[in-house]
């Protein structure tokens, strides 16, 4: 009997069972599968049990006063998916989000997502409308496969061995990284993890990871712990001016009445009376954003930021008027 068939039969067997099943009873029911010595068949059954557990089908051992009555059982109440009771709209948005992630081609846990979508749609009496949400993720070669490897490592807390390409150096370095989390920002996947090469917490663009493999031989034993207070968001830039290039600097901007209502969307913070403050660690990125808004956005201070803005505007002008070629 092949593995899938045996596992499926096991599920059916336990769903039928009205009492705990001893290992002897299981071996009697599947004589060809669990043959050999007691130890060998016990190990084989344990592997199957672990696999079923991963699929959300926990078999537990029930110890009765009489050893003969003890054995494994599957809690039928806990097995079946209950009806989640989604309204049509709730199901439609959940489905739209899920299908958008799935069809993007680069979302960790794709198989899990596909199975989950099937399950939540199970109770729907009418067909779920076609999704109208689309997600395009910067799609480097093999990105999907690398995301799966990283996500699996995060779940099992296993270290990764990877080659990371630096565009500046135009070369890749090999390093060991403990993956702490994945974040999608501005269409790009970021891996946050402890870098054993630099001995600090680092953020990596998954696009720039050229090769990645799981390290370690004991798959069920975690390689590292993640501090309770760790939050991925503290380590990834939500805006280009949050890249860590220099010490934090507070910049004050003013927006005209057309742009002011959009302040939250454009700069991540609301404008009061047309002005707002942004803390930057990459000043040029903020200035370039301001520059691209024409005369509707202005830098109020500090003077260092105003001077730098003038410099950058001057530079755009000179490269476009033949002063440089």
């Amino acid at each position: 009997m092949d593995r899938t068939e045996r596992l499926l039969n096991l599920v059916a067997f336990f769903l039928d069972a009205r009492a705990p099943m001893s290992l002897d009873a299981i071996r009697d029911a599947f004589p060809d599968d669990y043959s050999g010595s007691n130890d060998a068949s016990q190990r084989k059954f344990e592997r199957d049990k672990a696999e079923l557990y991963e699929l959300g089908i926990p078999l537990r051992y029930e110890q009765k006063t009489d050893d003969e009555d003890s054995g494994y059982l599957l809690d039928r109440e806990a097995y079946y998916l209950p009806e989640p009771g989604f309204s049509a709209d709730e199901l439609a948005v959940l489905y739209a989000a899920g299908s958008a992630a799935l069809t993007s081609g680069a979302f960790p846990g794709r198989q899990d997502l596909a199975h989950a979508l099937r399950k939540i749609g199970f109770f729907a009496d009418t067909p779920i409308p076609a999704a109208q949400v689309r997600l395009e993720v910067s799609n480097a070669k093999d990105l999907a496969a690398r995301l799966e490897t990283i996500w699996a490592a995060i779940g099992a807390r296993k270290s990764l061995d990877l080659d990371y390409f630096s565009p500046r150096a135009r070369a890749a370095t090999t390093r060991k990284v403990d993956p702490w989390g994945l974040a999608l920002r501005r269409g790009v996947w970021n891996l946050v993890g402890w870098c054993h090469l630099r001995k600090e917490l680092r953020t990596f663009h998954v696009n720039r990871i050229r090769r990645v493999t799981l390290l370690g031989t004991r798959p069920r034993q975690p390689d590292f712990d993640i501090p309770e207070k760790f939050s991925i968001d503290d380590h990834v830039a939500n805006w280009p001016w949050e890249y860590r290039i220099h010490e934090p600097l507070e910049v004050t901007l003013s927006l005209d009445e057309t742009l002011a209502p959009l302040s939250q969307q454009l700069f991540g913070t609301p404008a009061r009376g047309g002005t707002l403050r942004v803390t930057v660690t990459h000043l040029d990125a903020l200035l370039d954003q301001v520059l691209s808004m024409g005369t509707s956005a202005k830098v109020i201070g500090p003077s260092q930021a105003k001077d730098r803005l003038r410099e950058r505007a001057q530079r755009v002008l000179s490269v476009h008027t033949g002063a440089q070629s």
């Binding site: 959300g56 079946y80 998916l81 948005v93 992630a101 979302f107 199970f122």
Partner: peptide, 17 residues
């Protein structure tokens, strides 16, 4: 009925949402 959602299936869906 199908089996319940696994933790990984739930996470995939919640993240997509």
């Amino acid at each position: 009925a199908p089996p319940r959602l696994t933790a990984a299936e739930g996470v995939a869906l919640a993240s997509a949402a």
